[in-house]
Design a protein around this nucleic acid. Sequence first.
DNA 1: ATGAAAGCGCTAACAC
DNA 2: GTGTTAGCGCTTTCAT
Lengths: 367, 367
Amino acid sequence: MSPSKDNPTERRRPATVSIRDVAQRAGVSIATVSRAVNHISTVNAELAQRVWKAIEEVGYLPNTQARALVSGRSKMLGLIVSEITNPFFPELVQEFENLAVAQGYEVLIGSTNYDPARTESLMRRLLQRNVDGVAVMTFGVEEDLVKKLVEREFPLVFVDAAPDLSNIHVLKVDYAEGIRQGVQHLAALGHRRIAFISGPLTQRSPRARREAFLKSMAELGLKVPPEHLVEGSHNMEGGITAMERLIALPELPTAVMCSNDMTAIGALHALYRTTHKVPEDISVVGFDDIHLAQFMLPPLTTVQMSCRDLAAAAVEGLRAGIEQDHPRHGRREWHIPTRLVVRQSSTFPRGSLPALVSGTQPKRSGS
Amino acid sequence: MSPSKDNPTERRRPATVSIRDVAQRAGVSIATVSRAVNHISTVNAELAQRVWKAIEEVGYLPNTQARALVSGRSKMLGLIVSEITNPFFPELVQEFENLAVAQGYEVLIGSTNYDPARTESLMRRLLQRNVDGVAVMTFGVEEDLVKKLVEREFPLVFVDAAPDLSNIHVLKVDYAEGIRQGVQHLAALGHRRIAFISGPLTQRSPRARREAFLKSMAELGLKVPPEHLVEGSHNMEGGITAMERLIALPELPTAVMCSNDMTAIGALHALYRTTHKVPEDISVVGFDDIHLAQFMLPPLTTVQMSCRDLAAAAVEGLRAGIEQDHPRHGRREWHIPTRLVVRQSSTFPRGSLPALVSGTQPKRSGS
DNA sequence: ATGAAAGCGCTAACAC
DNA sequence: GTGTTAGCGCTTTCAT
């Protein structure tokens, strides 16, 4: 309760309890308290007892700042995402936080909003705060900076779009396999004319997904006419515009695979404004399994990349970088698997045999 | 580039540049560097110049931990939400972060998942990290703890559900006005038989919203038969169940006001499984304007409480508490206004004159 | 106006 | 095993 020093003028500073208060109370030195707190095995059991009792009594909380200062470890992790309001991220953040906290780390989150200036200042802020490592879940971090950090052996984890450097961890989402899962699902239902709405083709990851689509179709011996390959922008607007172009075709494809969920949701919106019904007239499949997907009408069939796996790999990668004693060289890659989540935006193509037998209406029970 | 002390064994510690490196480089004392960095006006302009140049050259970043340790201010704010995956929060988090960063603060986020144990450990973590203040955007923080913190004059901001204590800031969302806006909107469209799906009535805030609904209806001289008052649980499941009960009534109400958006979304789902169409057969209005609302089919008409206002008030409240010199007493309340966002889940009741004239189909342009 | 020095709360040598 | 003490990087008196 009483501050360490009984300063008569009592400077405006929160009256916190310090290690000295505990030491005094327990009748030991501050070193012993420190050792007890850190569970150093050499402390006499009885003394430790007394210390813990004193800690309870005075309500002592070790000051993490001081600890960080002397140990050189802040026990904080930086997490950089592009925009926290993008429905994909909150879940990732949640998982990341859970895992980090379980390991005794705190998380400093920042969103870049795709703004390079913001990204840079964010990075600086994180470094100033002495985070022990940073997980970069977006692109657009300047390569120079990354290089400098790598030289310092500063732990970094990237997802997908990583600079081509060694000594960093990269989380690789298996887009190819994910897209294939979606395509195979549609083909299995009987679809042949499957269109694809891609992301912005200026970026690498959307291009990779498009390639994966073409490859999956080729594997099945299915042709993709050029007008079935539309470019979107990985957000709802892009999905709407792209779908409108497909709707304008002389013949509607029976299914659309989308490069991500927001695109698929845009497609759903475009179709909602027409007389075409999902999934009876056209099946729609997304990619990501963002939270939103399950709430859509109809609930969206999509390909999930495990947030938990992603987060786990990120935290693990950072921890490895932080706690290693002799730096391990070489770039480590982590493989993040995907899996298909069948909901109600996909069904047999209209007029196909199974559709005639069961009715095109999918079951509408649980979401 | 070189560490402050040239320790031959070079302990595993990131080679950071310290204030001493700058001082040496600029040929001044560390005190001068400190003053220059902090823009103390008494420093000689020419010296300051030299210092800044040196800072550039050696790539110095002030260590926030050390700063915090000596100043007693961490320049970090805690933000406690119930669950980051609840679509209402990411936006709040984003705004909060933006504002805090603009003021030089970093944000430590934590979610409680409605778990008291987790909440408590979260609070302890935040205090240990020496955050300068905490915004509590959920209920369930133990009153005892709060009381202790208030005694220490620790800055706290609560939203809505605040313990009954003085010396804290409370953000009051004007539910009564918000609900009224929804009801008036429906009444203006010509609805008379308006049902209400509430949240769990064991909690205060849902009860307040229900009261507000009854009051708003009474103001308009509209009766609410008991079967039009259904209890939900502020999530989709609850919304579905509640709506199913309304659907089972001999006569469907022409409109439903919902205690929050997730409930409304549940209602939409329940209706989707029937032949009733939204909004032609029944209008649905939500409350919160979560991100999801605009993506629903049809896009959800709802009452928005301004995230930006909420976040701004929270940050302002904390800053006031942190930077005040002489503690201001009394509990300060901030009023957060609401506003109606008309989308496409509400329209005239079927068969009403305007409906016949314009067709019940609402315009389906931009979402 | 500038520098020397004390000390924020803690950990980790180093003595005993 | 325990206590004493020297810093971690910085701000802030207090001299000059």
